[in-house]
């Protein structure tokens, strides 16, 4: 569906640049007009970030955040995918576990912080645990749903060719569910990135989340607060774009061809 067909290349660049410039101008002049001394203008944010880059702090914070996400997310993948496939494969098992999952799911990963600190102390492990929790439930749920959504016709065809249950899972159900599972994994990665920043604001003393809270508490450096936020946005976007490349791999492309 499209209200304009044939938008040309020029427009594809023109409108975003125009809108972004307008946004920056608006920001700049509302800072000037309101006369705030605390909230930074775009220029101040840029200078603040440059300062951080020169001191080398920024580099370490970024690496710390990325490391925590990577470990926590990989852990969630390794545990969540097999469990999700298992529960999807045995609906009776799922019926037993589901109530627990449904109660645990609406609990903000941040609410686990006291528990995380109790188990792991203040530090890396606590933050990694939070990322793990944030990513784990969406991964399990998406695997269960994806397996349940595999059309009966595929299972029947597989059984008809004499496949045993393990083979049916490996050769029919898993590949059929894979595109939908990937969507879940991508969402879980996004959540992991949201959680690590939030977790770092409370549970550790490094990383981009800590940079935000630290910049505010030690001297109201709001230029650094906003700079760190923008950086978080850009890195999150890059992570998402990288993950999207997986969707073009041949054996799953069939599942994404309707979305451009």
């Amino acid at each position: 569906m499209n209200s304009l067909s044939g938008t040309n290349k020029l427009e594809r660049w023109l409108w975003p640049i125009l809108a972004t410039s307008l946004f920056l101008l608006l920001w700049r002049y509302s800072v000037t007009w309101s006369g705030t001394k605390v909230f930074p203008s775009p220029g101040e944010v840029e200078r603040g970030l440059a300062q951080l880059v020169q001191s080398g702090v920024l580099y370490h914070d970024i690496v710390d955040s990325l490391r925590r996400v990577a470990i926590g997310y990989l852990g969630a993948l390794c545990l969540g995918i097999p469990l999700g496939l298992l529960f999807g494969w045995y609906p009776s098992l799922n019926r037993i576990v589901n109530p627990v999952v449904q109660i645990l799911r609406p609990i903000s990963p941040i609410a686990w912080i006291p528990v995380a600190i109790l188990f792991f102390g203040v530090g890396d492990d606590a933050a990694i645990f939070l990322v793990f929790l944030g990513a784990f439930f969406p991964i399990v749920v998406s695997c269960v749903d994806s397996v349940a959504n595999v059309p009966l016709i595929y299972r029947r065809a597989g059984i008809n060719f004499g496949l045993t249950p393990p083979h049916l899972l490996a050769r029919v159900v898993f590949p059929a569910a894979l595109p939908q599972i990937l969507v879940g994994l991508r969402i879980a990665l996004g959540i992991g990135w949201l959680v690590v920043v939030a977790g770092e604001m409370i549970a550790v003393d490094s990383g981009l989340g800590f940079l935000i809270i630290d910049s505010r508490n030690s001297g109201k450096r709001y230029d650094l607060v906003v700079g760190a936020m923008l950086l978080i946005g850009v890195i999150g976007l890059i992570l998402d774009l990288l993950f999207r490349r997986l969707e073009t791999v041949k054996p799953v492309r069939w599942g994404f061809r309707n979305e451009s």
Partner: peptide, 14 residues
Amino acid sequence: RIFVFQERGVFPWL
């Protein structure tokens, strides 16, 4: 004895 569904039975990932 093989059952042939309407073309929907072809596996899209192969």
